[in-house]
Design a protein around this nucleic acid. Structure first.
Lengths: 174, 174
DNA sequence: GATTCAGGTTCCCTGAGGGAACTTAGCAGG
DNA sequence: CCTGCTAAGTTCCCTCAGGGAACCTGAATC
């Protein structure tokens, strides 16, 4: 809900952020993917204003991230569940959680563990290259203009940290 | 900058969101990790109000995500660069970008590609299990209370989509 | 018929964001 | 020496989004 809409910027981060760059939206998705589906439960769990919750849910439904579904007829009751598009935000939440665990967990350790059912172990999720499976970090990646980009000096893409560090002006002593 | 601060909630997503659940903050980090380090350049690139930019940068420095550094003495000039803590937000940005690419890229394809320098290929970054290396999704993970959690009915952790779907009330036809 | 419950809407008020002008400190040129 | 320029913020005003709480509606339950 940025005043200046980011939906038309040629950057997938900006486009995603236009929807997901809002604290309440993130937490709503966390809750929905955690199994909280009903309006009142969400409102109570989050401590969010009901007005804002209604607005966020409407936006998420409009964007195809959630769907509003009648789950009983008498009395008629609706709830919200994640679409495939919404479920894939799981990766973003995991990344956020991993970062929060790493930098904010106290001495006791992180507040939650993620168990990977396929291998049966508690996991530390990492971003991996879809091609070779090795971890991708700011240091071993670089960004290049893609086919759908308005390539040019104004185009912002997620880029190389090391390269930018190297090209960054350093102290110019006399 | 949520009115109700989330910093003390026993959930790493909420804690991370307290800082990173803001569109401008996300885009500032994208820019800094892309090589834009100076105040005016950020202001110009983002089209953000200078007041808000100053506030966000101060917060990010305070949180140890960025550091303000003098890069020349005459005249004195400062810029911002990512700390290790900040650089690790790269994973969150990648996840966001991957999601944006998948759901908002037009027919032309995504606006940018990420090249993985270690293997030399353009990559589709995926969340992988740090233990076995296989992909982690909403469907093959479950969340358990962690050592640092105030475990109890109020504790919210990122959870199992499938389980929640299974336990979710479905139509009760008469 | 009165109460409860789910799922919202409506109201008012404050405070965060947008926009633009102003400030400060150090050069740079004429 | 005076003016101008640039980087990096500040300050000011104004609007609009968020918080909080009350209200509403349809259906069931007491």
């Amino acid at each position: 809900m940025t005043r200046t809409s980011l939906a038309d910027v040629a950057c997938s981060i900006a486009r995603a952020t236009d929807l997901f760059g809002d604290a309440w939206t993130v937490l709503i998705m966390r809750d929905v993917l955690t199994g909280i589906h009903r309006f009142d439960d969400l409102a109570h769990d989050l401590g969010i204003s009901r007005k804002v919750l209604a607005a966020r849910l409407a936006r998420l439904v409009e964007e195809g991230v959630l769907e509003r579904e009648r789950y009983q007829e008498h009395p008629p009751r609706e709830h919200y569940r994640a679409t495939e598009k919404g479920a894939e935000l799981h990766a973003v939440l995991l990344a956020l959680m991993a970062w929060g665990d790493r930098w904010y967990a106290g001495e006791a350790g992180p507040p939650a563990r993620i168990r990977h059912l396929d291998c049966g172990h508690d996991t530390d999720p990492v971003m991996a290259c879809g091609h070779c499976g090795e971890p991708v970090t700011a240091d071993n990646t670089t960004a290049l203009p893609g086919p759908g980009g308005r390539t040019g000096p104004g185009t912002r893409v997620l880029g190389p940290l090391l390269a930018s560090r190297a090209s960054c002006p350093t102290r110019t002593e006399p």
